[in-house]
Amino acid sequence: MQVKLKVKRFDPADSGGKTWWQEYEVDVHPDSTVLDSLIEVREQADGTLAMRCACRASICGSCGMKVNGSAKLVCKTRVLDVAPNGEQLTIEPMGNQHVVRDLVISLDTFFNQINRVEPFLQPSFVPEKGEYTASNESMENLLTSMNCIMCGCCVSDCTVLEVDSNFIGPAALAKAWRFTEDPRDSKRDERLKALNDENGGMWDCTRCMKCVDVCPKGVAPMDRIMELREAAIEVGNTNTHGYHHTESFYKSVKKNGRLDETRLAIDSAGMFNIPRMLDLIPIGLAAMQKGKLPPLMPHKAEDHKKVKELYERVEGESK
């Protein structure tokens, strides 16, 4: 089977760092993965192509790259699945991380993010004998995050990291959750508070789901971030715009059955935060000029009282 590849090359030694595209065509077995094809290129066509790989079985997490614009473990990606009709494949190094050479990125960004969450157990006691044990049941739900093989695919495609390198990123937040939910860890509240307060912490995620989409191990980092937010609110962290946004939304639907957009904007910015309030005025005026300012008094859903009753029933049950 012929595989056509268009690979992004980078040579740091060539005139201060040269980037170019190079096309290859190799002959491989029909069951081959994208990694098999790249190895074939390196061994048969161009020994200068730099890439990182080891286990070839999606365990080691070394071969993350962008295939047609989306991060993947190339050892887990069959050529026939991404190019069923012999289409040319575009291969690039992962995004949001420093490129060392060709398809090899530096792991510094990734591990600097991971280190920010103190990724180790901090128990409050030393067991009298043996290990720190926990019941099976209490650990089962941690499996999602523990499946992480630190390949960096989620970091590569994170839409927030694209515009803000200070964001702690999906992998580190999923790792943090693994410790906040561990029954043996004693720093749950401190961890949640730090990630809640931190500039670039849990509330900067946009919920775009890219990390869920590209994670090859089902960690679903964004789902873990949502759980972190819920937990942070539960233990009393109410000092963020993110909290006010969520709270206002929840209450607005409870009261009106629908979203009150004007109220949401005011509550999220903070009613007494004068600079942020002033900031809302020009956009409000521009919208008004075009005849589309959201109504000051919200439209209510018909039967909105039934929505409120439903809320009360559900809230009563969980108390």
């Binding site: 900067d204 946009t206 919920r207 715009h241 946004h245």
Partner: peptide, 9 residues
């Protein structure tokens, strides 16, 4: 989704 949370981003 982050308009009111991190407007710069």
């Amino acid at each position: 989704p982050i308009l009111f949370i991190n407007q710069a981003n």
